[in-house]
Each structure stands twice: as C-alpha cells, then as structure tokens.
C-alpha cells in the first residue's frame, strides 16, 4: 500500500549498504481506519484514521487524557487483558493487511510482530540476560548461540551493552531507572519487531537518561518503524518524522512533524503547541 497525500516522497535515508537501497517512496507499515474504542460503556476513541509510515518515527502528542496511550495500546491489543473493552474499525498491519483488531484475529499474531516499551520501566524480576531473551524464549528459541548473539545485539542497539556486559546474570532490578528502560527497549528489540510502540518511554526518567533514550530512538529509526507517545512537544519535534495530535479521543491533526509544528492547519493544534492549553 502506498501512502497518499500527507506523506511527501522524501529521499530515502542513507542505507548501510548502497546495493540495498531503501525504496524511494515511504510505505505504510500500518493503516488505522475509522478506529473507535470503548472502556466498558465509555467511548474514549472516536473514529480515528491515520497511517504509520514504515521506517519512520511517528509521534502521538496531546494533553493528558486525550487517548494517545489508549490508541497506542490498540496496536498490540493490550486492552484485551481487561474485561469489557471494545474496539470498532480496523488497524491493518502491512504488508499482508492483517486486521489487528479484527474479531477473528488472534491477538498473539500482532503481538508476535509488534514490540512495546511501557511508560514505567517494567523489567521482569529476572536477570538482565533473561529479560532480553524473554521474547525469544516465548517464540521457542532454545539454541544458546542464537540467544547469546541476539541478546548481545539487542543490548548493543539499546546502547546498554557496555554497561552490563560483565553482569548479564545479575538481577534486572539492580539497574538504574534509565538503564532499566533501555533494558526494556532491548527486550522489545530482541524479537526484531516490525513495529515498535513506545508509551511515554521517558516520562519516568531524569533529563540525562531521557537524552540517552532520545538519541537511541533516533538511532533505532534506521531499522525499526516506531510509534511513540509523548507528552513532551519538544521531544516529538526532535525525534519524529510524523506527528499526530490528539484531543479528547479524536485525532485533530496528522502530518509531517515539521508541518504540524510550523504550519498547523488546525487552530487547536496551534493553541496546544504554543502552550495555550494542555
């Protein structure tokens, strides 16, 4: 599926290997179509439609309670864990076009392909190694060599390897908050997710750890398609290629980050990014 209007055909980012150049056109990794969502009787998302661009960072911004986290958690059906929740509409995961929230779709299928990092670092009460290996073990990987290699690679990508390589078997709870969050990123990266969901990944961290994670997101965007929820507009401007602005459960504006921040089409967006509310 090729994206229509809102995505300008930008030149492909520099590829690691020139002979494998990225497609010139940005394609959609996922397409949200007319998505609504209810917590029990209460509707919290109202017919949202937007694409998620492959190989790019998409930021979801908006005042707290606007539904951006709820929206993000639809992508891997996290809401299924609690009774009484209901989806309507479609979220198509490309290239096959599987409807993630379709009633016939096993939530395990999208979860196997989509990684998630939560607001608060939530490592398992296990060793650093086992945390990173978790997703692989869940997928039935047993081979020690594959596990070792993938754990190292993921920790390197999460910029944590140097700090923990000598204590891989120490408890994850011995790490600092920022390290724990990078560990959670490594854990999400290990199964090579096609889509990476970040739910306010820096909100529980100090400024230095936040800067670390932001750099990391930038680095990761070469390889992963990322959707990140943030309450911090500067952060969205710094790290994302596309931005979606939410308010009271509705998608107010979606577009390339630069345009949303410099030439917003909606006055509400304008008000929000200039700090008049939120």
């Amino acid at each position: 599926m090729t994206l229509a209007a809102p995505l300008p055909a930008e030149p492909a980012p520099p590829s690691a290997r020139p002979d494998e150049a990225r497609p010139a056109e940005i394609r959609a990794k996922a397409a949200v179509e007319d998505l609504s969502f209810w917590y029990g009787p209460k509707q919290v998302l109202f017919s949202i439609s937007m694409p998620v661009a492959e190989g790019c960072v998409t930021a979801l911004i908006g005042p707290s309670g606007c539904g951006k986290s709820t929206f993000l958690r639809c992508f891997n059906r996290m809401h299924d864990l609690y009774p009484g929740n209901r989806y309507a509409g479609r979220i198509l995961l490309e290239p096959e076009g599987i409807d993630i929230i379709g009633p016939k779709t096993d939530p395990m299928v999208p979860r196997m392909r989509i990684g998630m990092v939560f607001q608060k670092p939530n490592p398992f009460p296990k060793s650093i190694y086992e945390n990173v290996a978790a997703g692989l073990r869940i997928r039935g990987v047993r081979s020690r060599t594959v596990l070792d290699a993938q754990v190292e690679k993921s920790l390197r990508r999460a910029a944590l390897w140097e700090e923990v390589k000598d204590r891989l078997h120490a408890s994850a709870h011995t790490l600092s908050g920022g390290q724990q969050q990078r560990l959670c990123i490594a854990r999400a990266l290990a199964p090579e997710p096609e889509l990476l969901l970040l739910d306010e990944p820096t909100s529980a961290l100090d400024p230095i750890a936040t800067a670390h994670i932001e750099e990391l997101i930038d680095e990761l965007s070469r390889r992963y398609t990322i959707v990140v929820v943030t309450h911090n507009m500067q952060q969205a401007a710094r790290i994302s290629r596309f931005t979606a602005f939410f308010h009271l459960g509705r998608l107010i504006e979606f577009g390339p980050t630069e345009e949303v921040f410099t030439r917003p089409r909606e006055t509400m967006t304008q008000d929000y990014i200039t700090g008049r509310f939120g």
């Binding site: 039935g140 997710p193 992963y224």
Partner: peptide, 10 residues
Amino acid sequence: DGVLASGIRP
C-alpha cells in the same frame, strides 16, 4: 543490519 527488522517468527 541496515535493513528493516522483519521479526523473528515462531
């Protein structure tokens, strides 16, 4: 490296 991740699928 350098190619989009395509997922380790069971």
